[in-house]
Amino acid sequence: MKDLLEIRWHGRGGQGAKTSTQVLAETAMYQGYDIQAFPEYGPERGGAPMKAYNRISTHPIVIHSGVESPNMVVVIDPSLLEIVDVTQGLPDDGILLVNTDSKPEEIRRQLKFEKGTVGTVDATTIALETLKQPMPNLPMLGALLKANPVVSIDDLEASVRHKFEKKIGEEKTKANLDGVRRAYEEVVLE
């Protein structure tokens, strides 16, 4: 990892983008990184497009402004591709991860994102099959770690257990972890 990793998440209110940024940040913190996880609030309401951000660094993070040119962009809801400029500020060596049943080359063509890496995974189907709920946010974390192993998938699993087991019980936690693991294995990066 470079000194500083910046990630922008695109989702809709209620889809758990904020939770994903916090789980990732907490996992990285346990691995000795300094971290930030912050949502960008507009008029917050369920279903409205929203953004959330991560900073993960080997050095203390003192900056408190928004992320302008992220190393990675994660799109939790594919319907946002048509209404939000998700590649804004993403550099030529950036990584774009999209929850979709399309192939990376189709997304690349659609968004005219020619350089950089595009990754796709059908996280909604994975979530429906594992968690039985259309919550693709944690599976997208699995895909993210395949594209950039800033922390290991095992570290992530440990912190998901730590954060959720008491709150939602062992069975649901395991279903979430199955989704994370499947997305990690099924994501296609090109």
Binding site: Q22, P39, H64
Partner: peptide, 12 residues
């Protein structure tokens, strides 16, 4: 503390 910038950002 700064609303949202600090109050709603998760840090260590």
């Amino acid at each position: 503390q700064d609303g949202f910038i600090t109050s709603h950002a998760v840090e260590a």
